[in-house]
Amino acid sequence: MKTIKNTLQKYYVDFVLALPGLLFLTTFFVAPIIAMFIVSFTRWPIIGNPTFVGIRNYYRLFSDEFFLKALKNTLYYTLILVPSIISFSFLLALLLRNITRGKEFFKAIYLFPMVVTLTSTAAIWKGLYLPFGPLNQLLVKLGLRPIEFLSVELVIPSLCLVLIWRDIGYYALYFLAGLEEIPPEILEAATIDGAGAFHRFRYIVLPIMKPVTLLVSVLVTIGSFMIFTLVYVITAGGPAYSSQALLNYIYDTGWKEFRMGYAAAAAMIYFIILFALSMAQKLVIKHE
């Protein structure tokens, strides 16, 4: 008791200063998660009071083909997005670094897609991807066959392409900042020692850039699990759930089908996956 009192006396200023932030976090993050956890054990069609159903929602989720499909799709998004965004934004950063004139202009150009709201971006790409949209008209004019961008086979890569186009400029800035930190003397010394461009890149640039690469991979992985707007606007999860992401599944279950308890259970699983991923990546970064 005395220890607690002493601690409070010692740190009361710190505690008071941290209080607004703690209150904010509790109200807007911790409390909703607790509420979601409680709702996940109920059947609650928004109408009326929730009914306690135990772990039935969780039990059913793991045999729900649409939930499993959404989970699989989300992993597919991640598998495409993480390596693509990392490699393209790294490449872009290397190009930007070597530009001697107008670097700021090009940086602004590549960052521009990030400034446009994702809803507007999605609406534009939706028009581009239509079977008779401008992209296919262009392909036909070039003597090529039109592509069904939103078909079952291509819908996820097509949606990923939008995100890659949108995000590489932003992540290139991370890589660019990392590249700018590499002391030129090291590269010069390696050149004098006879290292070619490939060897300088492989043995000097890549190892130095490892922390940035890990950071970007964490951000893109989390971003991939948060895909929602693009799917919502362009495909609404179709055709036949082939582009449905986890968040879209949760939203549709809760707000279109009015199954709040079931949606909360799915959201809890989503939360656990995301939390585990973040922790794992944090550990890797710490280890590095």
Binding site: L130, F132, P239
Partner: peptide, 18 residues
Amino acid sequence: PPGIAYLEAGDAIALFTA
């Protein structure tokens, strides 16, 4: 037309009016 599995109602109307 191709792509009907993901055409929306507005797209179908646009195809008719076009």
